[in-house]
Nucleic acid binder design. Structure first.
Length: 275
DNA sequence: GAATTATGCCCAT
DNA sequence: TGGGCCTAATTCC
Protein backbone atom coordinates (compact mmCIF):
# COMPACT_ATOMS: atom_id res chain seq x y z
CA UNK A 1 0.00 0.00 0.00
CA UNK A 2 2.47 2.56 -1.15
CA UNK A 3 1.87 5.97 0.30
CA UNK A 4 4.76 7.59 2.15
CA UNK A 5 4.23 5.80 5.45
CA UNK A 6 4.72 2.39 3.79
CA UNK A 7 7.98 3.48 2.20
CA UNK A 8 9.40 4.86 5.46
CA UNK A 9 8.33 1.72 7.23
CA UNK A 10 10.13 -0.38 4.65
CA UNK A 11 13.27 1.76 4.97
CA UNK A 12 13.21 1.24 8.74
CA UNK A 13 12.82 -2.48 8.27
CA UNK A 14 15.66 -2.56 5.76
CA UNK A 15 17.96 -0.86 8.23
CA UNK A 16 17.02 -3.32 10.95
CA UNK A 17 17.42 -6.46 8.88
CA UNK A 18 20.05 -5.57 6.29
CA UNK A 19 21.73 -2.40 7.55
CA UNK A 20 25.55 -2.60 7.74
CA UNK A 21 25.58 -6.08 6.23
CA UNK A 22 26.92 -7.52 3.00
CA UNK A 23 23.99 -8.39 0.76
CA UNK A 24 23.47 -11.02 -1.86
CA UNK A 25 21.50 -9.33 -4.63
CA UNK A 26 19.93 -11.13 -7.59
CA UNK A 27 17.21 -10.48 -10.15
CA UNK A 28 15.19 -13.70 -10.53
CA UNK A 29 13.02 -12.05 -13.16
CA UNK A 30 16.09 -10.90 -15.07
CA UNK A 31 15.03 -7.32 -15.67
CA UNK A 32 17.51 -6.00 -13.13
CA UNK A 33 20.34 -8.47 -13.68
CA UNK A 34 22.92 -5.89 -14.73
CA UNK A 35 22.15 -3.65 -11.77
CA UNK A 36 22.06 -6.51 -9.29
CA UNK A 37 25.51 -7.62 -10.41
CA UNK A 38 26.89 -4.17 -9.53
CA UNK A 39 25.76 -4.27 -5.89
CA UNK A 40 25.86 -8.01 -5.23
CA UNK A 41 28.34 -8.63 -2.42
CA UNK A 42 28.45 -5.01 -1.29
CA UNK A 43 27.63 -3.68 2.15
CA UNK A 44 24.37 -1.76 2.63
CA UNK A 45 25.36 1.47 4.36
CA UNK A 46 21.90 2.89 4.95
CA UNK A 47 18.28 2.84 3.79
CA UNK A 48 16.43 6.16 3.71
CA UNK A 49 13.20 7.52 2.30
CA UNK A 50 11.78 10.78 1.01
CA UNK A 51 8.09 10.73 0.18
CA UNK A 52 7.33 7.62 -1.84
CA UNK A 53 10.92 6.89 -2.84
CA UNK A 54 13.36 4.71 -0.99
CA UNK A 55 17.12 4.88 -1.36
CA UNK A 56 19.62 2.16 -0.48
CA UNK A 57 23.15 3.47 -0.11
CA UNK A 58 25.82 0.89 -0.85
CA UNK A 59 29.58 1.00 -0.66
CA UNK A 60 31.41 2.69 -3.53
CA UNK A 61 28.86 5.51 -3.70
CA UNK A 62 26.21 3.47 -5.43
CA UNK A 63 22.58 4.05 -4.45
CA UNK A 64 19.58 1.98 -5.47
CA UNK A 65 16.52 4.19 -6.00
CA UNK A 66 13.21 2.38 -5.67
CA UNK A 67 9.74 3.75 -6.40
CA UNK A 68 6.89 1.27 -5.99
CA UNK A 69 4.45 3.19 -8.17
CA UNK A 70 0.93 1.83 -8.03
CA UNK A 71 1.79 -1.88 -8.30
CA UNK A 72 5.05 -2.34 -6.48
CA UNK A 73 5.26 -4.52 -3.39
CA UNK A 74 7.83 -5.82 -0.92
CA UNK A 75 7.81 -9.19 0.69
CA UNK A 76 10.09 -9.94 3.65
CA UNK A 77 10.52 -13.47 4.91
CA UNK A 78 12.82 -15.86 6.77
CA UNK A 79 13.82 -19.33 5.71
CA UNK A 80 15.31 -22.42 7.35
CA UNK A 81 17.70 -24.26 5.05
CA UNK A 82 17.42 -23.09 1.46
CA UNK A 83 16.06 -19.86 0.02
CA UNK A 84 12.60 -20.60 -1.44
CA UNK A 85 12.04 -20.35 -5.17
CA UNK A 86 10.75 -16.90 -6.18
CA UNK A 87 7.00 -16.73 -6.71
CA UNK A 88 5.75 -14.56 -9.57
CA UNK A 89 7.79 -11.77 -11.13
CA UNK A 90 10.52 -10.91 -8.64
CA UNK A 91 12.54 -7.96 -9.91
CA UNK A 92 15.11 -8.04 -7.11
CA UNK A 93 15.83 -10.34 -4.21
CA UNK A 94 18.10 -9.36 -1.29
CA UNK A 95 19.47 -12.11 0.94
CA UNK A 96 21.37 -11.97 4.23
CA UNK A 97 21.72 -14.95 6.54
CA UNK A 98 18.33 -16.62 6.72
CA UNK A 99 16.30 -13.61 5.66
CA UNK A 100 15.35 -12.24 2.27
CA UNK A 101 13.34 -9.44 0.70
CA UNK A 102 11.58 -9.70 -2.66
CA UNK A 103 10.64 -6.66 -4.73
CA UNK A 104 7.90 -6.99 -7.35
CA UNK A 105 6.49 -4.57 -9.91
CA UNK A 106 8.28 -1.33 -9.02
CA UNK A 107 7.90 1.70 -11.27
CA UNK A 108 11.53 2.59 -10.67
CA UNK A 109 14.49 0.47 -9.64
CA UNK A 110 17.62 2.29 -10.80
CA UNK A 111 21.20 2.25 -9.72
CA UNK A 112 22.57 5.80 -9.50
CA UNK A 113 25.37 7.52 -7.64
CA UNK A 114 24.73 8.60 -4.07
CA UNK A 115 25.32 12.17 -5.19
CA UNK A 116 22.58 11.85 -7.81
CA UNK A 117 20.25 10.44 -5.18
CA UNK A 118 20.80 13.45 -2.95
CA UNK A 119 19.98 15.77 -5.85
CA UNK A 120 16.79 13.85 -6.61
CA UNK A 121 15.71 13.94 -2.97
CA UNK A 122 16.24 17.68 -2.82
CA UNK A 123 13.84 18.21 -5.71
CA UNK A 124 11.01 16.62 -3.75
CA UNK A 125 8.71 18.63 -1.52
CA UNK A 126 8.84 18.58 2.29
CA UNK A 127 8.05 15.20 3.84
CA UNK A 128 5.93 15.13 7.03
CA UNK A 129 7.80 11.96 8.04
CA UNK A 130 11.28 13.48 7.86
CA UNK A 131 11.48 15.53 11.04
CA UNK A 132 13.47 18.75 11.18
CA UNK A 133 14.33 20.87 14.19
CA UNK A 134 13.52 24.29 12.74
CA UNK A 135 10.12 23.69 11.10
CA UNK A 136 11.56 24.65 7.73
CA UNK A 137 9.64 21.82 6.07
CA UNK A 138 6.35 23.10 7.44
CA UNK A 139 7.22 26.60 6.24
CA UNK A 140 8.00 25.35 2.74
CA UNK A 141 4.66 23.54 2.65
CA UNK A 142 2.70 26.57 3.83
CA UNK A 143 4.48 28.81 1.35
CA UNK A 144 3.85 26.50 -1.60
CA UNK A 145 0.15 26.10 -0.82
CA UNK A 146 -0.82 29.64 0.07
CA UNK A 147 0.85 31.14 -3.00
CA UNK A 148 -0.76 28.71 -5.46
CA UNK A 149 -3.81 29.23 -7.63
CA UNK A 150 -4.31 25.47 -7.95
CA UNK A 151 -6.92 23.46 -6.04
CA UNK A 152 -5.88 22.17 -2.62
CA UNK A 153 -6.92 18.68 -3.75
CA UNK A 154 -4.33 18.84 -6.54
CA UNK A 155 -1.64 20.43 -4.39
CA UNK A 156 -1.75 17.68 -1.75
CA UNK A 157 -1.06 15.10 -4.49
CA UNK A 158 1.84 17.05 -5.99
CA UNK A 159 5.07 15.45 -4.74
CA UNK A 160 6.98 18.71 -5.22
CA UNK A 161 4.56 20.44 -2.83
CA UNK A 162 4.49 17.72 -0.20
CA UNK A 163 6.18 14.33 -0.51
CA UNK A 164 4.46 11.16 0.61
CA UNK A 165 0.76 12.00 0.56
CA UNK A 166 -1.32 9.91 -1.87
CA UNK A 167 -4.96 9.48 -2.79
CA UNK A 168 -6.08 8.02 0.55
CA UNK A 169 -4.38 10.57 2.79
CA UNK A 170 -5.49 13.40 0.50
CA UNK A 171 -9.15 12.45 0.81
CA UNK A 172 -8.98 11.83 4.54
CA UNK A 173 -6.90 14.89 5.45
CA UNK A 174 -9.30 17.17 3.58
CA UNK A 175 -12.29 15.58 5.25
CA UNK A 176 -10.76 15.82 8.72
CA UNK A 177 -10.16 19.53 8.08
CA UNK A 178 -13.66 19.82 6.56
CA UNK A 179 -12.17 21.50 3.50
CA UNK A 180 -13.50 21.64 -0.05
CA UNK A 181 -10.94 19.91 -2.33
CA UNK A 182 -11.65 22.46 -5.07
CA UNK A 183 -10.79 25.53 -2.99
CA UNK A 184 -7.61 27.19 -4.27
CA UNK A 185 -4.44 27.19 -2.20
CA UNK A 186 -4.29 30.97 -2.12
CA UNK A 187 -7.73 31.12 -0.48
CA UNK A 188 -6.44 29.61 2.76
CA UNK A 189 -5.07 31.41 5.79
CA UNK A 190 -1.68 30.08 6.91
CA UNK A 191 -3.10 28.68 10.14
CA UNK A 192 -5.37 26.28 8.27
CA UNK A 193 -2.52 24.98 6.12
CA UNK A 194 -0.31 24.54 9.18
CA UNK A 195 -3.15 22.49 10.64
CA UNK A 196 -3.12 20.18 7.61
CA UNK A 197 0.64 19.76 7.91
CA UNK A 198 0.42 18.77 11.55
CA UNK A 199 -2.46 16.43 10.88
CA UNK A 200 -0.47 14.79 8.08
CA UNK A 201 2.44 14.33 10.49
CA UNK A 202 0.14 12.71 13.03
CA UNK A 203 -1.66 10.40 10.63
CA UNK A 204 1.45 9.31 8.76
CA UNK A 205 3.34 8.55 11.98
CA UNK A 206 0.49 6.26 12.96
CA UNK A 207 0.82 4.71 9.50
CA UNK A 208 4.54 4.05 10.01
CA UNK A 209 3.96 2.61 13.47
CA UNK A 210 1.08 0.33 12.55
CA UNK A 211 1.48 -0.23 8.82
CA UNK A 212 -2.18 0.72 8.44
CA UNK A 213 -3.69 4.02 7.39
CA UNK A 214 -5.91 4.85 10.35
CA UNK A 215 -7.65 8.16 9.80
CA UNK A 216 -10.57 7.87 12.23
CA UNK A 217 -9.43 8.43 15.79
CA UNK A 218 -12.00 6.01 17.20
CA UNK A 219 -10.25 3.17 15.34
CA UNK A 220 -6.85 3.84 16.90
CA UNK A 221 -7.29 1.27 19.66
CA UNK A 222 -8.88 -1.47 17.56
CA UNK A 223 -7.53 -3.10 14.46
CA UNK A 224 -9.79 -1.56 11.85
CA UNK A 225 -11.61 -3.74 9.33
CA UNK A 226 -9.98 -3.86 5.94
CA UNK A 227 -12.89 -2.37 4.04
CA UNK A 228 -14.96 0.73 4.69
CA UNK A 229 -12.42 2.00 7.21
CA UNK A 230 -12.23 5.61 6.15
CA UNK A 231 -14.27 8.79 6.34
CA UNK A 232 -14.68 9.25 2.58
CA UNK A 233 -12.05 7.27 0.64
CA UNK A 234 -13.78 4.65 -1.53
CA UNK A 235 -17.12 5.43 0.16
CA UNK A 236 -18.92 7.05 -2.77
CA UNK A 237 -22.69 6.69 -2.45
CA UNK A 238 -22.47 5.68 1.21
CA UNK A 239 -23.67 8.05 3.93
CA UNK A 240 -21.13 10.49 5.34
CA UNK A 241 -20.19 9.31 8.83
CA UNK A 242 -20.77 12.81 10.19
CA UNK A 243 -23.80 14.24 8.37
CA UNK A 244 -25.32 11.33 6.44
CA UNK A 245 -25.04 12.98 3.02
CA UNK A 246 -23.98 10.61 0.23
CA UNK A 247 -20.22 10.75 -0.25
CA UNK A 248 -19.32 12.16 -3.67
CA UNK A 249 -16.79 10.97 -6.21
CA UNK A 250 -15.21 12.83 -9.12
CA UNK A 251 -12.09 12.66 -11.22
CA UNK A 252 -9.47 15.27 -10.43
CA UNK A 253 -6.43 15.12 -12.73
CA UNK A 254 -7.58 11.61 -13.67
CA UNK A 255 -7.45 10.37 -10.07
CA UNK A 256 -10.53 9.53 -8.04
CA UNK A 257 -11.46 12.18 -5.53
CA UNK A 258 -13.83 11.42 -2.64
CA UNK A 259 -15.45 14.05 -0.45
CA UNK A 260 -18.60 15.13 1.39
CA UNK A 261 -20.15 18.15 -0.28
CA UNK A 262 -21.97 19.18 2.89
CA UNK A 263 -19.22 18.81 5.47
CA UNK A 264 -16.36 20.05 3.31
CA UNK A 265 -16.56 23.72 2.47
CA UNK A 266 -14.24 26.49 1.25
CA UNK A 267 -12.27 28.39 3.92
CA UNK A 268 -14.27 30.72 6.13
CA UNK A 269 -15.69 33.88 4.58
CA UNK A 270 -13.55 36.08 6.79
CA UNK A 271 -10.42 34.46 5.41
CA UNK A 272 -11.61 34.87 1.84
CA UNK A 273 -12.17 38.60 2.33
CA UNK A 274 -8.62 38.98 3.60
CA UNK A 275 -7.08 37.51 0.45
C1' DG B 1 -11.21 -17.85 -16.20
C1' DA B 2 -11.74 -13.17 -17.69
C1' DA B 3 -12.23 -8.51 -16.60
C1' DT B 4 -11.49 -4.87 -13.52
C1' DT B 5 -9.11 -2.29 -10.25
C1' DA B 6 -5.28 -0.09 -7.51
C1' DT B 7 -2.62 3.79 -2.15
C1' DG B 8 1.61 6.51 -8.98
C1' DC B 9 3.67 8.95 -12.23
C1' DC B 10 5.73 9.61 -16.87
C1' DC B 11 5.14 11.10 -21.46
C1' DA B 12 2.97 12.70 -25.76
C1' DT B 13 -0.34 15.58 -27.68
C1' DT C 1 -6.54 14.56 -21.34
C1' DG C 2 -5.39 10.04 -22.31
C1' DG C 3 -2.34 6.08 -22.81
C1' DG C 4 1.35 3.32 -21.00
C1' DC C 5 3.85 1.03 -17.62
C1' DC C 6 3.52 -3.50 -14.82
C1' DT C 7 1.80 -6.89 -11.13
C1' DA C 8 -1.43 -9.10 -8.03
C1' DA C 9 -5.77 -9.12 -5.79
C1' DT C 10 -10.52 -8.69 -6.23
C1' DT C 11 -14.74 -8.84 -8.69
C1' DC C 12 -17.55 -10.41 -12.24
C1' DC C 13 -19.43 -13.73 -15.14
Amino acid sequence: MPEGHTVHRTANHFNEVFGGKVLEVISPQGRFSAGAAQIDGLKLIEAWAVGKQMFLNFENDLTLRIHLGIYGKWNFAKFKEVVPEPVGQVRVRFIVGNQFADLRGPTACDLITTQEALVLAKQLGPDPLNPDSDSSQESRFVQKITTSKRAIGLLLMDQSVVAGIGNVYRAELLFRARLDPYALGSMFPESVIRGIWHDAETLMKVGVATGIMITRDELLDALPAKVDRYFVYKREGLPCRVCGTEVSIALMASRKLYWCTKCQTPPATAAKIET
